[in-house]
Write a protein that binds this DNA or RNA. Structure first.
Length: 422
RNA sequence: GGAGAGGUGGCUGAGCGGUUGAAAGCGCCGGUCUUGAAAACCGGUGUGGGCCUUGUGUCCACCGUGAGUUCAAAUCUCACCCUCUCCGCCA
């Protein structure tokens, strides 16, 4: 969330941010709510001060064994006044906090403004494969090789779920192992394996709640949520903590399944692996000092790209426009990989700097040695990378004329030396 | 799921309803001593918020969370959450 004081003092910046994001949040209603609650707060605090004064006088009266009756009556009167104001104040406070949590982050000034069509391609890597036959779509490839079973996945769970089989399942596991090893051994990340169910506080801290509750899978009996990304449990590792400055930056990587309800997206990308309710992902999360966060974002992006370069999959990087970045992000790069069968660029990673937006919600701070002050850390995360779509790209990029798939060289050690699936 | 114990500052841990924002110790910061370091000793050290005259300013809140009793709650009552121990169940 944003600092309420910052919003109050810079309403124009926030208003512009909302406009750039095409967010309909009613800032004026928020601001008057803030003013009203502070007005009431001042009244109540004055009464508290009065109460404290009576309290002090009361102590003297008792000590000197005088008659306390009139002071007691005074105290009663104050108490009555406080309890009346308090009721209204509490209502306002609940509304205020809820509204505050619905204000998105202010986009960084460097990023393109407006509609997603203004997303800027800042890099392309690799050459699109040339085939001397018509490349098939991944669905056909996978069904021919019997490594993904779409029909049975639907029977077991429903539409847009996956069932990997045989070499398909092995490929999935190989990719996870390859990526985790790369990030832990070469990029300095610590491996984390978190729970896939998290509580409401955790979802609020990273910014999924309260706004996006409809998009989340929720266990209604226990008020748990299925994680939409490892970002949630991993960022929450340090919720309500004060970190040591010398421990920063902290790098974590985690493989988890991710669950997306995608309410309201029916009819869009409904076929194959490109949009599913559950997929695997290796996530990268960083906690850094504020002055380092934009430098760390660039490094994070390189870490994610390295995965694709080692797999030799053509990719491009998009710098997202204000209208396309997520609720909590200040700046975000998307990485898209090319799938020659369906002839589409597929998003496999979003690398974002949240600045102190999540840290403020989650209360993740560190004590700055030089000043002795507590400061919010900056949090970042990026996929390194998402699996289902990566499998699409591998199948379509590495397909052969005979319908077989050659295994990218870096994956072979993870597949027991297998060179092709046929 | 059953029984019991307990949640107090960065940590450990005291706390008869009224000079308790909170003893003590550890840690941390500064100083003395030392060639330097350690030890010892001395001093300091919570967070969040409101207000304006932005100041070594002032006021308020905070002892798991929420409600209640009271003139007054860390302390009493109730509910909830969480942790630990034992038992049960279980991969």
């Amino acid at each position: 969330m944003l600092d309420p004081k910052f919003i109050r003092e810079n309403p124009d910046i926030v208003r512009q941010a909302l406009k750039d994001r095409n967010d309909k949040f009613d800032l004026d209603a928020y601001l008057s709510l803030d003013e009203e609650r502070r007005r009431l707060m001042r009244q109540i605090e004055e009464l508290f001060a009065l109460q404290n004064k009576i309290d002090a006088e009361m102590k003297i009266i008792i000590k000197e064994r005088k008659d306390p009756a009139s002071k007691i009556a005074e105290g009663r009167e104050i108490k009555k006044q406080i309890s009346e104001l308090d009721k209204t104040f509490n209502e306002l406070e609940v509304r205020f906090k809820d509204q505050l949590l619905r204000i998105p982050n202010v986009p960084h000034t460097s990023i393109p403004k407006g509609h997603p069509s203004n997303n800027k391609i800042i890099k392309e890597w690799g050459n699109k494969r040339k085939f001397d036959f018509k490349p098939l779509e991944h669905i056909a490839i996978a069904e021919n090789l019997d490594i993904i079973d779409f029909k049975r996945a639907t029977k077991i769970s429903g539409s847009n779920f996956i069932l990997f089989k045989g070499a398909g399942a092995r490929l999935e596991r190989a990719l996870i192992g390859f990526m985790l090893d790369l990030h832990t051994q070469k990029h300095g990340f610590k491996e984390i394996s978190p729970a896939l169910l998290v509580n409401r506080d955790s979802m609020r801290a990273t910014g999924q709640l309260p706004k996006l509750e409809e998009d989340m899978y929720r266990l209604k009996d226990d008020d748990f949520f299925l994680i939409p990304t490892a970002e949630v449990p991993v960022t929450n590792i340090h919720r309500d903590e004060v970190l040591h400055e010398e421990d920063l930056p902290i790098y974590y990587t985690a493989y988890t399944a991710c669950f997306r309800r995608e309410a309201g997206s029916y009819g869009k990308d409904t076929k194959g692996l490109t949009r599913v309710h559950q997929f695997d992902k290796v996530e990268l999360v960083k906690f850094v000092k504020p002055q380092d966060s934009y430098n760390e974002l660039e490094k994070l992006l390189v870490n994610a790209c390295t995965v694709l370069e080692l797999l030799d999959i053509p990719y491009r990087i998009l710098e997202l426009a204000t209208g396309d970045i997520s609720f909590a992000a200040a700046k975000c790069y998307d990485i898209e990989i090319y799938a020659p069968g369906i002839e589409k660029w597929l998003e496999v990673s979003s690398c974002s700097n949240f600045e102190d937006f999540q840290a403020r919600r989650a209360s993740i701070r560190y004590k700055e040695k030089e000043t002795g002050k507590l400061k919010f850390v900056h949090t970042l995360n990026g996929s390194g990378v998402a699996l289902a779509r990566l499998v699409v790209a591998i199948l379509e990029n590495y397909q052969q004329a005979d319908g077989a798939i050659t295994i990218p060289e870096v994956l072979r050690p993870y597949m027991g030396g297998t060179e092709k699936i046929s």
